Structures are given as C-alpha cells and as structure tokens.
Simulated assay, not measured.
Amino acid sequence: MIFMLRKNILPLTSMVLVLGLTGLATQVEPVKASTYGNGAVVTVPKKMQGTWYSYDRDAHDGQKITFGAHTVNGKLIYTQDKNVISDYFNGKIKNQKKFDQVTKNWMSGKTTTMKNDTFYEIDPWVTFEKWSLYRVTPQTINGQKHNILVYTSRYDGGNYYRSKKLAKQMKDYKFEKVNYTL
C-alpha cells in the first residue's frame, strides 16, 4: 500500500511543481538592463550623505543638494552603460518617449580620479557636456574644522556646507588649496 501511494504521489507532486513554475515564469516580465543602460545602484559615501547648502553664484545644482544612500535630490543613481548616451543621440533607442519616462528620475554615477583627487561624478541620465564632480574635504573656517562638499565641473566650481548660515557666510569663497575647475 505504501509503495502504491509513493508511486502515485511522486508524479502528482512533479506535475504540480512544473505547472506552478510555468505559471510563475509566464507572469514575470524580464527586465533588460541594456534597454535603459542602467547597471548597479551606486552607493553614496556616508560622509557625503545628507543635505548641503550653497549660496555661490555658480552653484550648478541650486542652493541645496541632498544625498541619500543611493540618491541625489530624490533621484536614484545608477552606473551607466558607456554606449547608452551615444545610442540615444544617434537614434538607436527605439522608443525614446518610453526611455525618457522610465529614466526621468535616474542619475548616472561613478568614481573619477582627477589631479590626484577622488571625485564622485553624478550626472543627469542623458546629457551632453554636463557633468558634476563632488568630494568632501575638511577645511578650517574661523578656527573650526568643517567638512565641505566641493563641486566642480569643466567650467565652474564652489562649495556646499552643512548649514545655511555657514553657506551664507562663505558665499562665493574659494579655498586656496582646492582646485575648482578641471
């Protein structure tokens, strides 16, 4: 009796398992990372996380910038396939409206070393000639040490501070040993 029960249960169990997996597989739509060019989510260094303020006339991301563990101003930061921008501008992306809709809250991010400094490059998902580099550097202001978020691009640069008060006080100030343009 036990032998007959095992003989009937094994095929029945196998059939339920196969049907269940088949049903699951047909309901999950695979996501192709290459469709939008996104790779891994970028982790922002802890010392950059939080809200920073600037009153510099060249503050290219506005007077306030907020970094989360994986975001800048609420937009997710991903590594980006090196071909996605050229594919976009050369018309190789088949449905650009859908591409724009899906990626509108994405940023591109990576680590970059320039002139012996490590920067975190964070850019809009699709851009031409706009890039922003950030790094935290300690500076002494009025005898006290402060971490400053230095930003630079090809054309300008400046500082973000942890408080609005310090940002107003240091408006347009350039630290001597900081290279703001690359």
Rank of each mutant, 00 (worst) to 15 (best):
residue 90 N to P: 04
residue 113 T to N: 06
residue 93 I to K: 02
residue 34 S to G: 09
residue 53 Y to S: 02
residue 111 T to D: 10
residue 182 L to S: 01
residue 131 W to Y: 15
residue 20 G to R: 08
residue 34 S to V: 11
residue 136 V to Q: 03
residue 55 Y to N: 13
residue 85 I to H: 02
residue 85 I to N: 03
residue 11 P to G: 08
residue 146 H to C: 06
residue 163 S to Q: 13
residue 82 K to W: 05
residue 6 R to C: 12
residue 7 K to R: 15
residue 155 Y to L: 10
residue 15 M to G: 08
residue 101 Q to D: 13
residue 169 Q to M: 14
residue 84 V to Q: 01
residue 114 M to S: 10
residue 123 D to T: 10
residue 43 T to I: 08
residue 120 Y to G: 00
residue 155 Y to T: 12
residue 167 A to F: 04
residue 80 Q to G: 02
residue 157 G to V: 06
residue 91 G to R: 06
residue 98 K to G: 04
residue 111 T to S: 11
residue 160 Y to W: 08
residue 27 Q to N: 15
residue 25 A to D: 11
residue 107 M to F: 09
residue 47 K to N: 14
residue 27 Q to L: 15
residue 12 L to D: 05
residue 117 D to W: 07
residue 140 T to C: 09
residue 63 Q to K: 12
residue 92 K to A: 11
residue 97 K to D: 12
residue 137 T to E: 12
residue 121 E to V: 12
residue 99 F to S: 08
residue 62 G to P: 00
residue 1 M to Q: 12
residue 142 N to D: 15
residue 72 V to T: 00
residue 75 K to F: 00
residue 135 R to Q: 13
residue 81 D to M: 04
residue 119 F to A: 00
residue 108 S to V: 05
residue 36 Y to I: 11
residue 26 T to H: 08
residue 26 T to R: 14
residue 1 M to G: 13
residue 103 T to E: 06
residue 136 V to C: 06
residue 27 Q to C: 11
residue 160 Y to C: 02
residue 10 L to M: 11
residue 35 T to D: 15
residue 146 H to R: 09
residue 181 T to I: 10
residue 35 T to K: 10
residue 85 I to D: 03
residue 46 K to Y: 06
residue 50 G to F: 05
residue 17 L to C: 14
residue 12 L to Q: 07
residue 143 G to R: 12
residue 102 V to F: 04
residue 25 A to N: 14
residue 12 L to F: 14
residue 179 N to T: 09
residue 57 R to H: 14
residue 110 K to W: 03
residue 151 Y to P: 01
residue 161 Y to I: 08
residue 91 G to N: 11
residue 117 D to Q: 14
residue 151 Y to N: 01
residue 160 Y to L: 04
residue 130 K to H: 15
residue 71 T to C: 02
residue 95 N to L: 07
residue 140 T to F: 08
residue 181 T to A: 07
residue 179 N to A: 05
residue 140 T to D: 11
residue 4 M to Y: 14
residue 128 F to P: 00
residue 22 T to H: 09
residue 43 T to M: 08
residue 15 M to C: 13
residue 3 F to V: 12
residue 139 Q to V: 11
residue 18 V to G: 04
residue 99 F to I: 05
residue 48 M to P: 02
residue 163 S to A: 12
residue 180 Y to A: 04
residue 33 A to C: 09
residue 8 N to M: 15
residue 159 N to R: 05
residue 153 S to N: 15
residue 37 G to T: 06
residue 162 R to S: 12
residue 51 T to F: 10
residue 32 K to R: 14
residue 165 K to C: 07
residue 67 F to R: 00
residue 131 W to S: 05
residue 73 N to D: 07
residue 21 L to P: 03
residue 176 E to C: 01
residue 135 R to Y: 08
residue 181 T to Q: 06
